[in-house]
Design a protein around this nucleic acid. Structure first.
Lengths: 123, 123
DNA sequence: AAAATTATTCTACATTTGTAGAGTAAATTC
DNA sequence: GAATTTACTCTACAAATGTAGAATAATTTT
């Protein structure tokens, strides 16, 4: 089960906060803020999909993510790579390198990083 | 307007074929193939969203993409980068380099590519 | 303690998506 | 030329999504 758009947006907020009560989540929205019932519905659906859980404190709940942002993101990217590059990460990397408008400095940094990565693998 | 999942799947077929009549599109599906009316509906919706158009030949239509796969893909990736890396392509690149399981050779190729890219920019 | 506020659940409803039958008009086959 | 097939449009309908009011129960304020 995937998150829908509005669920994902809420998830982003929750990832940033790490954990939060509903009121805090709503506070994090830009105006016009959604109705509390809207968020309650989304949270419930996200629980059903096993993306969040909560700890009860008195009559309130502190929600927290069950899925790490990093993992979720990876899944998204891998999905894209599968659909558009026939599952080839390197083809994607090549495409990205050419098409993204990384600056000279950013490219340098990236090269640096890749070199480290190469070394690490060798070791 | 974005493509929905099943629309995107159909779009992938159309990108591959470059242009096609409905029957060819359906033929490209694995079994169980969708009903022709299903595809007709999807195509109509995709026309409304301005993702495909067609040329009429007799009583049939040859459909073709109005959006290049590359551009569509870029938009997807940029959306992800915006949501997950605060719009920083280089942060994304760094993450990807670390997290993807590129082989030693692939990393080498990538470094090569980046070096070329750096040179090109310098020129 | 009555009034107001809060936190959550239940219900609701419009839109979008996934999927396809029924109908119709043209083209092909018998 | 009657029967069948083809290509497409119209209509339909269940499930998912986006959004929120009404109801209820607990909590705080006056």
């Amino acid at each position: 089960m995937q998150l829908s758009n509005s669920e994902e947006q809420l998830m982003q907020i929750l990832w940033k906060k790490e954990k939060a009560f509903m009121k805090e989540l709503i506070a994090a929205y830009p105006d016009p803020k959604p109705a509390t019932t809207t968020i309650a519905t989304l949270l419930k659906r996200m629980q059903d999909k096993n993306f969040v859980d909560y700890v009860q404190y008195g009559r309130s709940r502190e929600y927290f993510p069950l899925v790490r942002k990093k993992d979720y993101f990876s899944k998204q990217v891998n999905g894209l790579i599968k659909n558009f590059f026939n599952d080839s990460a390197s083809q994607f990397a090549s495409f990205f390198t050419k098409e993204s408008n990384l600056s000279q400095d950013e490219l340098e940094d990236l090269r640096q990083l890749i070199e480290e990565q190469i070394k690490r693998k060798k070791a």
